[in-house]
Design a protein around this nucleic acid. Sequence first.
DNA 1: GGTCGCATTTAGAGCCGTCTAAAGTTTAAG
DNA 2: CTTAAACTTTAGACGGCTCTAAATGCGACC
Lengths: 246, 246
Amino acid sequence: MLSDVMEDYLKAIYTLQTEDGDPVATSAIAEYLDVTPPTVTSMVEKLEDRGLVEREKYKGVELTAEGETVALEVLRHHRLLEAYLTEHLDYSWSEVHDEADRLEHHISEEFERRVADALGDPEVDPHGDPIPSEDLAPIAEDDTTRLSDHTEGDTVVVARVSDRDDEELRYLSNAGITPGTRVRVVGVAPFGMVTVRVGERETPEASPNGESQGREQSLPESVAASIRVRRTETEGATPESGVGGA
Amino acid sequence: MLSDVMEDYLKAIYTLQTEDGDPVATSAIAEYLDVTPPTVTSMVEKLEDRGLVEREKYKGVELTAEGETVALEVLRHHRLLEAYLTEHLDYSWSEVHDEADRLEHHISEEFERRVADALGDPEVDPHGDPIPSEDLAPIAEDDTTRLSDHTEGDTVVVARVSDRDDEELRYLSNAGITPGTRVRVVGVAPFGMVTVRVGERETPEASPNGESQGREQSLPESVAASIRVRRTETEGATPESGVGGA
DNA sequence: GGTCGCATTTAGAGCCGTCTAAAGTTTAAG
DNA sequence: CTTAAACTTTAGACGGCTCTAAATGCGACC
């Protein structure tokens, strides 16, 4: 009964909200979905009428529990599709997002279940993003930090990369930086440019990144900020606190 | 650039047109798509503006070459999806149609190609319907006849069944009547009710219909008319001529 | 060959999602 | 504390797809 478009708004609000906990601004949604702010205002009113969001005029919008469930359902579809396309239809890591973005609104519960079965109920998609469980329970807070918040000497394992930018994904893929890759920060230049030495993957499995092994890679701040990492068990690698931000 | 809805109209016109060669009536499209006739008139005007159909007021509508290509593209998507869902996602024969009807409008060329690859470029879908080739060349006339046009004693092989009615499909599936099944007409009752003896499948492969083997099945006229059959090489089984019809 | 019934089209309306232009609110800067 | 800048909402419009009600055309039957 919800339109594709409504689902997109809920997904956008979910994504923007979980990034920083605050109510989501009209303009942020507009930018994320590439529409004008008045369009967002009118859509958000409809979502409010349906009890999917709560809103305070001029302040921002938040999902209700029901709205969040819808967002999680769509997200589950999206990420299962990404995983399926990668594993069973030979899509590469970076091609998968747009296809999933279209299909996520049109698959049945049946399809969702069969895809999940075929994959063995995975917990993360190929970009390392967690796949909401079948019961659509809220996703637990994650324990990752931004690569850009680390300093020289830290050794970390890549946990997640953003799935929204094809070009960035191709670049990282080329550089051998994928979820599971161990990297060591060898330098932080002004403006947040981070240089890392690419190590071997923790779980070597499918795609070995042989030729990138040991190479040094410099990453612009924006890219380093969208890479979420987890510290290795062997070394302390806690980032300085309070460096987060937009 | 075409909307889902436009694609549905083109597909409907294609289907209705190839059933009897004549221009397609507004009311036929309306019934097929479950909308009102005025809706069809206005949509058909838009399709005409785009050069996808030709139309004579109060007479009917036909696809242009371009319109037919679009219809074939959508049909290719639909039938590849039906085949894929059946072969790789464990869907049953009768569940597949609705899922394909939704997804057909939203898959990329990429997806189409990868699915076709995974299937090995099949020529027919699970219902026996021909899958348009990648170049979308018009589909050759088929050499099948309606089961309902045959008479007592004819032995034929099921070539295609309609994919539009779940219930009918489940019924036939239960009766062991699927594409490839050999049947012998043992009686034709008044009002076209046909009774057949179900034989073994020509290509035994995947789903054997063991328990239905040799059973007799009576099929109402409407069902027998939607089953397309091909005569066996061993016996003459040409239907009476000129019995075709809506 | 007229007339009646059915098919089709025209007319007018509504909802959805979007836009631009204008008006209103909030907030930060002076 | 005033005011300007930035953000948000209101107002009004449009194209897409659908509907109902009314007008029109076609064809068949007497």
